[in-house]
């Protein structure tokens, strides 16, 4: 199917700023799903609040636009009642790591079969460029005019620590590998976390002397390397991308079914 069959054109033009990376993430999601051949009606996309969440309006799947930080909680409800459906939760910095941080670690711990896509732009874009838990130390934001003194979460390490069975990182510059990673994340049986560095030229770029979206994409090109690259030894500041974890752990819905079966037998 062509890409436009996956979107609701009646809601276009979208609200994302010129140069925003979120459209690239959406395009890659669509291509991954097209490649996997999953039926549109078998996919549920659940979003929270913020720039990222608007994806629910544009994608022509079952979509559930919920409240700030709770995308994974709603998605857990959908998945437990209809485990046969494919659940994708695209989230922003706040949804995934600030107000919704608890939901992420517990979804990871349970290993419920949901794909969490972190549209990581290191800033709160929609509300005006406040720093987020993914804004790096020393970075600038409207609320950090002299530089941020908080350290950012390392999405990959946090997801690994919380027990996610699939953990990957990619960027909006590396579209082809992003599509491949998303295919693997969506088909992975268990909780998948994909950290996608997605540029916000309007706020993060403007505040951090990355003047244009192109500059930011170039930054992703020059400041990230594939996992295990020798470059990392020379420059430890380089950010690794690729698949960090791909493990088979017991999946939550399957475990839940087993308990039901066990309890039913013993009755």
């Amino acid at each position: 199917m062509p890409v436009r069959d996956y979107i609701r054109e009646r809601f276009f033009p979208h609200i994302w700023c010129p140069g925003c990376g979120h459209g690239t993430v959406m395009g890659s999601m669509i291509r991954a799903i097209e490649n996997l051949g999953i039926k549109k009606s078998d996919i549920v996309v659940v979003s929270g609040i913020g720039c990222s969440s608007r994806i629910c309006g544009y994608l022509d799947f079952h979509t559930l636009h919920t409240i700030h930080g709770r995308a994974l909680a709603f998605a857990t409800g959908v998945k437990l009642s209809r485990p046969e459906l494919t659940l994708i939760a695209p989230m922003g910095d706040g949804d995934a790591f600030a107000i919704g941080g608890n939901h992420l670690i517990h979804a990871a711990r349970r290993n419920i079969d949901i794909t969490a896509i972190i549209m990581n732009n290191s800033i709160y874009g929609m509300t005006g460029g406040q720093y987020s838990p993914l804004t790096g130390y020393g970075d600038f934001a409207t609320t950090a005019p002299y530089g941020n003194i908080d350290r950012s979460f390392d999405v990959v390490k946090l997801a690994m620590g919380a027990g996610a069975s699939f953990v990957a990182r990619t960027t909006t510059y590396h579209v082809r590998s992003m599509i491949k990673i998303l295919e693997k994340a969506i088909t992975h049986k268990g909780f998948s976390v994909v950290d996608i560095l997605s540029q916000c030229p309007t706020y993060f770029g403007r505040k951090n002397k990355l003047e244009s979206a192109v500059d930011m994409l170039k930054y992703y090109k020059t400041h990230t390397i594939p996992i295990g690259s020798k470059e990392k030894e020379k420059n430890p500041d380089l950010i690794e991308r690729g698949i960090f974890v791909q493990e088979k752990y017991p999946e939550y819905c399957a475990e839940y079914d087993k308990i039901i079966e066990k309890a039913s037998k013993e009755r």
Binding site: M126, T127, T143, P145
Partner: peptide, 18 residues
């Protein structure tokens, strides 16, 4: 905590503090 349409209050107050 920022939320539209309150955010300008939060921002401006943080400026006054800074």
């Amino acid at each position: 905590y920022p939320i539209t349409p309150q955010s300008h209050i939060a921002e401006h107050l943080s400026e006054l503090v800074a």
